[in-house]
């Protein structure tokens, strides 16, 4: 049980990272970015291609991770410039459907380039790791937890402490006023979309070792979990989204733990889906977000 809690906090931190991306884009553009998860999967394929010794280049993991992040940033940048930036006048719904198009595009591209067979990306650090207070904590889990916390805190600090970060938050609240005080809205938009893509890539790199293998569509599954996390924060609260990630992670792992041997598979997915419905129907403004007008 405690083992499930540890695993829950670890994957929860990863969901939280993706949820931060969802919230950033939602605050900035009032849009749900459905392509975000698949940007992570694409990054994972890039990392696999760089790292894998037999079918890829056989380079070190860190180089693969760097390439993954660069790829995610590049895809996000291109999508923002070519599509989002040209849809300033469009309805938010239309932009949302365009991100669905991005999701389908990346999904199909992965299938086309790398096929449907599962891929295995070696974890950054091998081994079982130390026992802490009687619990197994693998090096990968430690790495995931530390990176998620560091990135989450770092991003929040950047947004709250720097002029550009405050500009991002200000633009989210009132674009017209932000423009008047000189916030570069175009750059802010690029920033939010690119950061969302990079967060998805980092989350993908961190979550893959906990599963072991991945295929096309891998991260869109976790995108749904991250959506649940972001919804708990009302889609507008950054700390709420991260905390929501931990909640979803613990729910996911404990239900998996308790439902071993139950004849209905995938109960944790069912539980997360129920959580989404519950939050949407009972408290659409989230547990921590502010009520929308």
């Amino acid at each position: 049980m405690s083992q499930a809690l540890v695993a829950g906090v670890v994957v929860g931190g990863i969901y939280g990272l993706m949820a931060l991306g969802i919230v950033l884009v939602y605050k900035g553009a009032r849009v749900l970015h459905f392509g975000q998860g698949e940007i992570g999967t694409l990054a994972l394929f890039v990392a696999w291609w760089v790292v894998d010794e037999r079918q890829g280049l056989g380079q070190p993991w860190l180089l693969g991770a760097a390439a993954a992040v660069v790829a995610a940033a590049a895809v996000s940048l291109v999508f923002e410039r070519l599509v989002v930036a040209r849809m300033v006048e469009a309805s938010r719904l239309a932009i949302g459907v365009a991100t669905v198009g991005l999701l389908l595009f990346l999904f199909s591209l992965e299938l086309k380039l790398w096929g449907a067979s599962p891929k295995y990306l070696a974890p950054p650090i091998e081994g079982l790791g130390p026992r802490v207070a009687g619990l197994h904590v693998s090096p990968t889990q430690v790495l995931a937890l530390v990176s998620a916390a560091a990135i989450g805190l770092g991003l929040t600090a950047f947004l709250r402490r720097t002029d550009f970060g405050l500009g991002v938050l200000g633009a989210a609240q009132d674009p017209a006023a932000a423009r008047l005080v000189g916030v570069p809205l175009a750059r802010v938009s690029v920033f939010t979309w690119v950061v969302a893509g990079v967060l998805a890539a980092v989350a993908a790199l961190l979550v893959e070792p906990t599963i072991g293998v991945f295929t096309a569509g891998f991260m869109t599954r976790f995108f749904v979990f991250a959506l649940a996390a972001a919804l708990i924060g009302g889609l507008t609260s950054l700390p709420g989204a991260f905390a929501g990630g931990i909640v979803v992670g613990i729910l996911d792992q404990t239900v998996q733990y308790w439902s071993l041997g139950v004849p209905v598979p995938g109960l944790s997915v069912l539980a997360v889906f129920a959580l989404i419905l519950l939050v949407l129907l009972v408290r659409p403004q989230g547990l921590l977000g502010r009520a929308a007008a």
């Binding site: 719904l93 949302g96 749904v224 598979p265 995938g266 989404i276 419905l277 129907l281």
Partner: peptide
Amino acid sequence: RLRGLYLAITTLGLLLVMQESI
């Protein structure tokens, strides 16, 4: 109660539940 993209969330979630569970 919900409009627009919120429905995209619930229908995406349903598909995931269908494939992995039901």
